[in-house]
Design a protein around this nucleic acid. Structure first.
Lengths: 151, 151
DNA sequence: CTCATTTAGTGGCATATACCACTATAACCG
DNA sequence: CGGTTATAGTGGTATATGCCACTAAATGAG
């Protein structure tokens, strides 16, 4: 009944990454649960907050997320009144995003919980380990897998 | 227009992990696309294949995935005839999973593409880097975040 | 044996995330 | 200026995942 009775699991970089993401996501989600937000939503609110009324495209590319996926993810936050959008006056194709006052309050609340989760994570894995892990993950996010142009 | 105009992004372990997972997922998915399978599905077929007609619970716990999530994820694979399930004769609560002949053929096909993606990843990040990354991710997956029992 | 409890999965609902086709707007070119 | 192209988002559809309430089946206590 060991947790890892199945072999071979550790071979695929992508599978391992997703697996770790599920684990960590469950942990962060648990800790954030009292706020009613998921970790993804907390992260998104935070990104919006630290940006200067960022355009959707800017957020999406920062988060390496599909633009339409961002749009979908934003919907519950808009519905719940944490976030609002408005067209850029200089380019009406661009939709900018900001927190509502209510969203600011909520962010404050959820960030307290986030600190708990973050701290607990770093207690368990070690601060330096966590830092180098994040660096490694940032490295992956920055990779370019394109084959060098043949011509 | 830098990709990372927004600051602060790199602070959250969970957010960074998800971000890297999106990036890598997109890459693996791209490479596997000709097979018609997503990387998650390839990974799942593979897990089923290397297991001995594993029970759903066993798969779920190996992958650190919610049991019901596994059930949902399995549905398209069953619908497309790659996978079938059957009740364990000794314990009818248990549902075991196996590949169909068609599933085996498909796995073969998709694994060829997987090797391409995997190889390309390791070319780009380095074999040793990849190995230690996977080890780190496995470490995260194995963490225990429970607070030590107060009693 | 019978009832309470635990275990294994299911189904519904909600969010996360991607791709595609489409629309609106801006930018560019002759 | 007018038509073509490029850019920014939207909506639909599909998979990925999680939680909860529920059912079925096995286990354990009396």
């Amino acid at each position: 009944m060991s947790k890892n009775a199945l072999p071979g699991l550790t071979l695929c970089n992508n599978a391992m990454l997703r697996r770790a993401a599920r684990k960590l996501g469950q942990f962060y989600d648990d800790v954030l649960a009292p706020s009613g937000l998921k970790a993804t939503q907390q992260g998104l609110l935070y990104q919006i907050h630290i940006g200067d009324e960022p355009a959707m495209g800017a957020i999406a590319s920062s988060l390496i997320m599909d633009l339409s996926a961002l749009g979908h993810t934003l919907k519950p936050l808009i519905r719940d009144g944490y976030v609002e959008t408005f067209a850029d006056p200089d380019d009406r194709r661009i939709k900018r995003v900001r927190l509502t006052p209510r969203g600011l309050v909520k962010l404050d609340e959820v960030m307290k919980l986030w600190h708990v989760a973050q701290q607990r994570f770093e207690d368990v894995v070690g601060k330096d380990q966590a830092t180098s892990l994040r660096a490694a993950l940032d490295g992956i996010a920055a990779l370019d897998f394109d084959l060098p142009p043949a011509g």
